[in-house]
């Protein structure tokens, strides 16, 4: 049997807005993925260690507080430090368009902003996994 796609949905930083993260988590689960949701206030260190421990294929992070430019790249750095290069990392939240190129350069594969459909996110994940095949 094919292994299910494993996703860590994470809320980095102090932001408490988790409606989006939870809706995404549930829709990924309904799409047949195995989802681990971290809960609020995760440090980049906690997110990276959870991703290694849970052996996930994907990390999906959500920030609505504006701290994305600090926290998203920090997660990428820590992954690199651990030698992890086969995990797909995506982000979402209230993120100005002009910040997206910088986040992508840091290694965030895609950034989903308000109004994104869960179906698009599911498609993106399925089509861009790094570990499959």
């Amino acid at each position: 049997m094919e292994r299910k796609i494993r996703v860590l949905v994470a809320k980095p930083g102090l932001d408490g807005h988790d409606r989006g993260a939870k809706v995404i988590a549930r829709s990924l689960r309904d799409a047949g993925m195995e989802v681990i949701y971290t809960g609020l206030r995760q440090t980049p260190e906690q997110i990276v260690s959870a991703s290694v421990q849970e052996d996930v294929d994907v990390i999906a992070m959500s920030i609505l507080s504006g701290a994305h430019n600090h926290l998203f790249p920090r997660v990428m750095e820590l992954l690199k430090d651990k030698g992890v290069d086969d995990v797909l990392v995506v982000g979402g939240g209230v993120i100005p368009d002009e910040d997206i190129p910088g986040l992508k350069a840091a290694g965030i594969a895609a950034v989903f902003t308000p109004g994104s459909a869960t179906t698009d996110i599911i498609e993106f994940i399925k089509n861009n996994l790094k570990r499959r095949e």
Binding site: L14, D15, S65
Partner: peptide
């Protein structure tokens, strides 16, 4: 834990 969040 305040890093990146101050004044945001």
């Amino acid at each position: 834990l305040s890093q990146g969040e101050v004044g945001k």
